[in-house]
Nucleic acid binder design. Structure first.
Length: 423
RNA sequence: AGAGGAGUGGCAGAGUGGUCGAAUGCGGCGGUCUUGAAAACCGUUGUACCGCAAGGUACCGGGGGUUCGAAUCCCUCCUCCUCUGCCA
């Protein structure tokens, strides 16, 4: 969430940024934030003063008691009763203001970076670059949901039988392809200095709040009610919450972590004709990279993460483009997001396979993720993450773009991991 | 899952109603001494909020309560350890 001081010190900038996102009623909401914060401060100042007086009296009572002056002690005691009532009132006022302030801040998205284009929807995203050749497929090519049946490598019907829609079963070479991709992605990340982390895939409520899935996206997560745990929608949640309530020292920066996990998304109400096959699932595998950096370095880091993801796509020989998301299409918590899309020749459309974002202090403010520098001052770190990569659409595009009348050719980099070159 | 024990500063560990944000030791940082280092000695060493500042307030696993006053008493939740049970 945004910092109140960020709003106070740069009111015009924050307002303009929120408007670029088409955030409704920005002006009224920001004014409300400032007035709630004023109320919070003034009630605390008063409360602290009353409390100081009360503490002084209590100390005095202690002294009188020790000297055996019980009557005098009892006399002063009566004064504290009155103070207590006032303290209670001020405390209520203070905590109400604080809670309202927090609830309001939760509803305000991050301020976009200056390079973010204005716009309302995906159509206004800016194409930064395109790379790779779009393959020309043979007559009679098929989309992946046909190919997986033809070669019997991914089975949706079996998934329906044992779980439900959106939970595919990977078989034989299909399963092997999944494992090869995961290993390839992890090995590549480690070669770039990321440390591999295997986190739990169920997380508690605090973690949900830490990265922003709660309170508003509650319906998107599967919930294990007997134990109050959420199935993670992305490894971002455990990987970033590792650093909740942590003060790093400056020399620990940048933190570079990578993790492979299954991801679970309820995707309530988002089913339709264009989300067939592997395009949208309830359970899928993803390798996620997370970095925690010094505020001065985060944009440099964002570029390097973007190039890293592009490198993966190049090695997989997939044609892709990079988009800079416009204000209206960005995620709630992001300040700048690049989406990587791979062209699927059989579906004749671009598929989003990665999203790389800089959250600046938006997440770290919620997480209380800070670092202490040479000057011994603690300040909020910047957090970034990106998919590197999510498997299903990568699998879909590999299958579709590499299909030939007599089989599907596997990218060269994967062959050592696969043990075969063709499906 | 059942029975018992325990959670205090970076770590170890005292403190069982007031002068306790908290002894002491270790570690860290600064200094004296030294050619340098070690040792010794001296000083310093948590986080957050309010305040222009001086300063104030809160925090002893989390939350709630009793009391003029809580690290200390009560309730509740969480976590860890030991034993029993179950188990990849």
């Amino acid at each position: 969430m945004l910092l109140v001081n960020q709003i106070r010190d740069n009111y015009a900038g924050v307002l303009a940024g929120l408007q670029k996102r088409n955030f409704q009623n920005a002006e009224a909401i920001l004014a409300e934030v400032l007035s709630l914060d004023d109320l919070r401060k003034s009630s605390q100042t008063q409360r602290d003063q009353m409390q100081a007086e009360s503490n002084a009296i209590s100390k005095q009572i202690g002294m009188l008691m020790r000297e055996g002056k019980t009557a005098e002690a009892n006399e002063i005691k009566e004064r504290t009763a009155q103070i207590k009532i006032q303290i209670k009132e001020l405390e209520d006022q203070n905590s109400t203001a604080e809670e309202s302030l927090k609830a309001l801040l939760y509803t305000i998205p991050n301020v976009p970076h200056s390079s973010v284009p204005a716009g309302k929807s995906a159509e206004d995203n800016e194409v930064v670059l395109e790379n790779g050749e779009i393959p020309v497929l043979y007559e009679g090519n098929q989309p992946h949901w046909e190919l997986i049946k033809k070669y019997d490598i991914i089975d949706f019907d079996l998934g329906v039988k044992i779980t439900g829609a959106g939970f595919p079963v990977y078989k034989g070479k299909g399963a092997r392809l999944q494992r090869a991709l995961v290993n390839f992605f992890l090995d590549e990340a480690m070669a770039q200095g990321y440390m591999e982390i295997q986190p739990p895939i169920l997380v508690n409520e605090d973690s949900g709040y830490g990265t922003g899935q709660l309170p508003d996206k509650e319906g998107q997560m599967y919930f294990a009610s007997a134990d109050n745990l959420y199935l993670i929608p992305t490894a971002e949640v455990p990987l970033t919450n590792l650093y909740r309530d942590v003060i790093l020292s400056e020399e620990d920066l940048p933190v570079k972590n990578v993790g492979f996990t299954p991801c679970f998304r309820r995707e309530a109400g988002s089913w339709g004709a264009h989300v067939r096959g592997l395009n949208r699932l309830h359970q899928f595998d993803k390798v996620e990279i997370v970095q925690i950096t010094h505020p001065d370095k985060s944009y440099e880091t964002l570029e390097s993460m973007s190039s890293y993801v592009q490198g993966l796509l190049q090695k997989l020989e997939l044609p892709y483009r990079v988009l800079r998301l416009c204000g209206g299409d960005m995620g709630f918590t992001s300040a700048l997001t690049y989406d990587m899309e791979v062209y699927s020749a059989a579906q004749e459309r671009w598929l989003e396979v990665s999203s790389v974002s800089n959250f600046e202090t938006y997440q770290s403010n919620r997480l209380k993720l800070r670092f202490k520098g040479e000057d011994k001052k603690t300040q909020l770190a910047h957090s970034l993450n990106g998919s590197a990569l999510a498997l299903p659409r990568i699998v879909a595009s590999i299958l579709e773009n590499n299909q030939t009348p007599d089989g599907i050719t596997m990218p060269k980099v994967l062959q050592p991991y696969l043990g075969f070159d063709k499906i």
